[in-house]
Every structure is written in structure tokens, then in C-alpha cells.
């Protein structure tokens, strides 16, 4: 199976590997996949007061396509608002990395990871805004 140069670059030089404090109110954490299925992604976003994603970090257990997909989405979400980020589609990821058909599920997982991180972030914000009302 031949992989694209972009995919290999993300695998060999992954961007934004790391961990942020999951208890920080501005940090949303998404943990998707399962060890028994052979892939687990942890994606974290740090959102500013203005609702802009200023930083993103990931850690992934999985094949090269899974690692590259998560690395790519950390780059993509940075600078976007959470509402923009939630619009990222798995097909965009798959196209960008030229994922072979058997690896499409890796891009699906990356999309799920973004959504999970955003939803975690929103759930943290909610009680606060309710309290303000």
C-alpha cells in the first residue's frame, strides 16, 4: 500500500503531540476509539475567552493513518472557532491525506475526536453560563 507524502510527513513528524490539563475549564478533551479495535485517539483543544481554539494537542494509539489524521486535525482546528471546527468532515481529512479506502475509518475517528473534544469543552462551559443568568 503506497501512502501519500503528506501522510508520511505527519506520521514521521507529527504536529502537536502532547497533553494539556484536562481539568482546565478552557480545555476540551475527546477520547475516542478502543484499544481492542486497534486505535484510540485523544484530542485536546484549548479555547480562548472569545471562543477561538488557540491550541490543540493529540496522542494516538493506532496505525500510521490514524496518527497522521489526528496530527492533521490539530493543525486544522487551531485558529478556528468551535463552531467552525465542528464542521470539519472526515472526507476532508481523507482527501487531504489521500487515505486508501481501508483507512477511511481513521478519518472518521479523527472527526469524532474533534466533536468529542468540543462537546467536552461545551459541557464544562454550560454550568458557568447558566450560573451567570
Amino acid at each position: 500500500m503506497a501512502y501519500s507524502d503528506k501522510l508520511l510527513d505527519h506520521y514521521e513528524n507529527p504536529r502537536n503531540v502532547g497533553t494539556m490539563d484536562k481539568d482546565d475549564d478552557g480545555v476540551g478533551t475527546g477520547l475516542v476509539g478502543a484499544p481492542a479495535c486497534g486505535d484510540v485517539m485523544k484530542l485536546q483543544i484549548k479555547v480562548s475567552e472569545e471562543g477561538i481554539i488557540e491550541d490543540a494537542k493529540f496522542k494516538t494509539f493506532g496505525c500510521g493513518s490514524a496518527i497522521a489524521s489526528s496530527s492533521l486535525v490539530t493543525e486544522w482546528v487551531k485558529g478556528k472557532t468551535v463552531d467552525e471546527a465542528v464542521e470539519i468532515k472526515n472526507t476532508d481529512i481523507a482527501d487531504e491525506l489521500a487515505l486508501p479506502p481501508v483507512k477511511i475509518h481513521c478519518s472518521v475517528l479523527a472527526e469524532d475526536a474533534i466533536k468529542a473534544a468540543i462537546s467536552d469543552y461545551k459541557s464544562k462551559k454550560k454550568p458557568e453560563s447558566e450560573a451567570a443568568e
Binding site: L31, P35, V40, M41, K42, K59, T60, I67
Partner: peptide
């Protein structure tokens, strides 16, 4: 170093408990 499972194991989290 890139694996969330390794990180959990280092923190003493049992991945089976998740």
C-alpha cells in the same frame, strides 16, 4: 510517547477500567 494508552499506564490508570 505519542500513545494515550502509554500515558494512562504511566499515570497508573488501568485502561480496562475505561
Amino acid at each position: 510517547l505519542m500513545s494515550p494508552l502509554w500515558e494512562m499506564a504511566q499515570e497508573g490508570i488501568d485502561i480496562k477500567s475505561i
